[in-house]
Simulated scan of single mutants.
Amino acid sequence: MTSSAAAPAGAAPAAAPPSQTLSRGIRALEILAAAPGPLTIAELADAMAVHRSVAYRILRTLEDHSLLERDNAGKLMPGPGLAVLARGVSRNLQAAAMPELTHLANTLDMTAFVALWDHHDCITLVTVEPRHAGATVAQHPGSRHPINAGAPGIAIQSALTEAEWERLGTGIAYRPEATEARRQGYSASHDEVIPGVSSLAAPVRVPGGRPAALAVVYIRSAHGPAVVGEALAASAARIEALLA
């Protein structure tokens, strides 16, 4: 009979190894979401760096849950089940933000969106494009960019002091612009994420969670940055009041 030594009292349990199958399934969905169009099984297997038979087993499971589907040619693309999952992400923030996003988009003639902090990135949660504007900048839900580039990331940092940010141990430097954004209530950037595109953002403090950012993107504007920034800060304050 074999025996194993008991863990010392109070010791943290050993971390369970991650599920390789689950990780591959999530990676498959990430690849499909980022692809410009539907992919064949072979193309997806290559992108995942796995044998086609392995990819096929994973994809069958995802397909059973409507997380992916096939077009008329049998190619793979994201399925409607993802929309159901996305609807539950930060549900309270989405509900509180939508009226403000709609107001900002149609008042400023700019694409307005909410960005969430995800590790080293900002991810667009929800977006609203203006009803009657001509050329606008598309900002699709799920799109991401580095948190250390662009107004949303600066705004998220500005919700914290530099000391608070450093204590989080993110490994990302606290941008000097975040200190100024903390003072004036909004941040600005130009040409950082998309060439020729400007962005302004205000932090949204989420109770019990990480700060988010309320932002707009535009190429040209009839409004000065201060006017747009103050509108964003006012909208962010109303969202925070609803979340409190």
Results as ranks from 00 to 15, higher is better:
Thr170Cys: 00
His65Pro: 00
Pro130Cys: 12
His223Ala: 14
Ala112Leu: 13
Leu214Asp: 04
Ile239Pro: 02
Tyr186Cys: 07
Gly169Trp: 01
Thr136Cys: 07
Glu30Ser: 12
Pro17Ile: 02
Pro211Arg: 05
Arg220Glu: 15
Gln20Glu: 12
Gly229Arg: 00
Leu116Pro: 06
Pro225Gln: 07
Met98Tyr: 12
Ala96Glu: 03
Ala237Cys: 12
Leu104Thr: 02
Gln20Gly: 10
His145Trp: 14
Ala83Val: 08
Leu125Ala: 07
Gly171Val: 07
Gly142Trp: 05
Gln94Lys: 14
His51Ser: 13
Gln94Pro: 05
His190Val: 11
Cys122Phe: 03
Ala234Tyr: 04
Ala115Val: 09
Gln157Asp: 04
Gly229Glu: 09
Arg60Asn: 13
Ala159Glu: 12
Ser66Trp: 10
Ala5Glu: 11
Ile41Leu: 14
Glu177Cys: 02
Ala213Arg: 09
Ser4Pro: 08
Pro99Asp: 13
Leu242His: 06
Val137Arg: 04
Ser158His: 10
Ser198Gln: 14
Val84Trp: 10
Ala244Thr: 12
Thr40Arg: 12
Ser90Cys: 11
Met77Tyr: 03
Leu242Asn: 02
Pro8Phe: 02
Leu200His: 04
Asp64Thr: 13
Leu68Pro: 08
Ala215Met: 05
Asn92Ser: 15
Ala47Cys: 04
Pro13Ile: 08
Ala11Lys: 05
Ala12His: 11
Val204His: 04
Ser66Gln: 15
Gly142Cys: 03
Leu200Glu: 09
Met110Gly: 01
